[in-house]
Design a protein around this nucleic acid. Structure first.
Lengths: 175, 175
DNA sequence: GTCTATATCAAGATAGAC
DNA sequence: GTCTATCTTGATATAGAC
């Protein structure tokens, strides 16, 4: 499953064959099907794992004292992965972008990690006393996702770092 | 080619079969291969067409008198397609996101439409007297792309409209 | 539970009549 | 140039031995 998450991120869901995952994880092909009946089941498990990781990350941020600090630390998470993001995009964003065009239920489930972040950030901006916390949260997450996409398109990690800094300054300006 | 552009946008490049394009365009399957030797050739043509459309759009915006007006009008283009964007994502952003994970040259070519916009916007911000026009252009395009992705993930056209308005207000504040 | 061999099928690409 | 029939490949999924 970890191999699947990595390969879906690096090569995309559609372009990753189960044989690729079998080889990368050293798990025999047939064995994968013992745990995941279909490829869709596997990507569902990957998305669920992403959602759990997000929940853990947000819980960690909640340990910080002030909301502005927490929001800035959220943004910093993408900057920590700047080289991976510039090469392969944001793991949540690129997967949601690919799965969102499907008609089955998978498209909605793929949005869960981003939804969790959005809801959490809305709470933080509310605590900050922002007049429109939902819009502010969307501005922050859109800024993160958009710079991840641009940094990926231009293969430029510096673009990501610059924009994250810009977002952090914006957050700081209303603390 | 127009059918390919539409289906690549709606279903994604990998998930669209040439048979789908043949059916949608009423062009017999074998006939497509007379004009495009491979599926990669076809998506290359689609990206080239996107780049041309972008060039035409930017030339149209150049007709406006003031740079702030032009930049706001650029952002308005996405709001005009709000329902399509909320359902299928930005046609440039989603294609670049899918093709960017490929190792061949196609990944770089897919970035051309976004690069054209970025370069143009940089010039506009420079004309506006912005201290860091490159960063401002990245902020604008990242905001547009990020809200397109979020609006798509949440299936919420209003999110896109809100964010576009926010970006336009930001542009207006420095005119 | 593990693993190899294979069935099945869809999709890219081609052959060749018209 | 147009179109149908088909070849070929590769990927999902399964069968069945161990």
């Amino acid at each position: 499953m970890a191999s699947a998450a990595e390969l879906f991120h690096h090569k995309g869901f559609g372009a990753t064959a189960l044989a690729d995952i079998a080889e990368h994880s050293k798990v025999p092909l047939g064995n994968i099907y013992y745990y995941y009946r279909t490829k869709d089941d596997l990507v569902r498990a990957v998305v669920d794992a992403q959602a759990s990781q997000v929940a853990v990350m947000l819980a960690g941020l909640d340990e910080m004292s002030r909301p502005a600090e927490r929001l800035a630390a959220l943004a910093a998470r993408w900057d920590l992965m700047r080289d991976v993001v510039a090469r392969h995009g944001c793991p949540f964003g690129s997967l949601v972008s690919e799965l969102d065009r499907r008609a089955d239920g998978l498209d909605r489930e793929a949005a869960v990690p981003l939804t969790l972040i959005l809801r959490w950030a809305t709470g933080q901006f509310r605590e900050l006393g922002h007049a429109d916390p939902e819009q502010a949260a969307a501005t922050l997450l859109a800024g993160i996702q958009g710079s991840s996409l641009l940094a990926n398109a231009l293969r430029d990690p510096d673009l990501l770092t610059d924009q994250i800094r810009h977002l952090q300054a914006w957050i700081g300006s209303m603390a």
